[in-house]
Design a protein around this nucleic acid. Sequence first.
DNA 1: ATGGCATTTCAATAAGTTTTGAAAATTCAG
DNA 2: CTGAATTTTCAAAACTTATTGAAATGCCAT
Lengths: 168, 168
Amino acid sequence: MKLAEAKQQFISSWGAFGTHWGINRTMAQIHALLLISPDPLSQDDIMEELSVSRGNANMNIRELVDWGLVDRVIIPGERKEFFVAEKDIWKVATQIVHERKKRELNPMLKLMDNLSEVEGDKKDKHIRQFTETIDGIKRFGHSADKMLDTLVKADENWFIGNLMKLFK
Amino acid sequence: MKLAEAKQQFISSWGAFGTHWGINRTMAQIHALLLISPDPLSQDDIMEELSVSRGNANMNIRELVDWGLVDRVIIPGERKEFFVAEKDIWKVATQIVHERKKRELNPMLKLMDNLSEVEGDKKDKHIRQFTETIDGIKRFGHSADKMLDTLVKADENWFIGNLMKLFK
DNA sequence: ATGGCATTTCAATAAGTTTTGAAAATTCAG
DNA sequence: CTGAATTTTCAAAACTTATTGAAATGCCAT
């Protein structure tokens, strides 16, 4: 397969993927493009390669920077800003886990803490099932939280090494 | 907090959550409703509790059954079908992991295998960065795949126990 | 300070997704 | 069989989210 074709396929499927993961198509495509780019790209480069508008490119680049997946870089002698993606996939993954944990898991656990304070007759089966469900989610959520924290802090080799021992 | 209020909050936030996870609002709400229901519910019960249309309820219940999160049950003497959710959150989570792995991770790895066969001068930096990125994703993906397989097969206590030892 | 390039914003529009509800198909008791 | 109850389908409408592009703002060398 030729590079140009492979590149197109990679970008377009990374984009399709993104949509399953709460990341929008353009954001994922920009990320894909930067991942395979040996050099930093400017906003105009990105607009041109992906045929997207200025506003769209700007907004999604900013989002990628917010997520910590892309960095702005200054190229001496150039007026424009350039962008590079973190290339180490392990770091990309832990960064994403970190952000989603912060944005989704933590608020959810907070909500569950609230909901466990439901009042009423403990013998009523509706009350009983409600509190059991909430408690189950809380317990599970706290384990997940702890595990993900460790994962985020861990070094890739340490992690994979130990995990593989554990999982034989 | 009163049960009715807590229930509303739980259903509505579980729905909002779902949307971050590629699950649509109604599907997640139906799931939430069934999770806290001590008894099986019929499609009409669900339509009424959540104020959604017949078609919408039908379609999303079917999806939940496809995902293995909800079972149809027959109640003797009743003509209608009834539905119950798997209540064990660990099982819910592993079921979701299993399905998403099948639907998303596996196809992605297959694609990466394809893309690694890009032809051209290995010294060209574009080719080099492309193959390095693809290889990185492949390696990471295969580790994740193995780990998730083990997780899906594992028993909750075994898993949490070992993990906590590892992660102290 | 000014002009010119770069970046950001945002209202309008387009694209995509979910929901509705009525019609069609299916099921099953009598 | 028949027909009433139940489930499924699907085109149209409602709603949500993403994208555009022009205008506003920011930035910096002169």
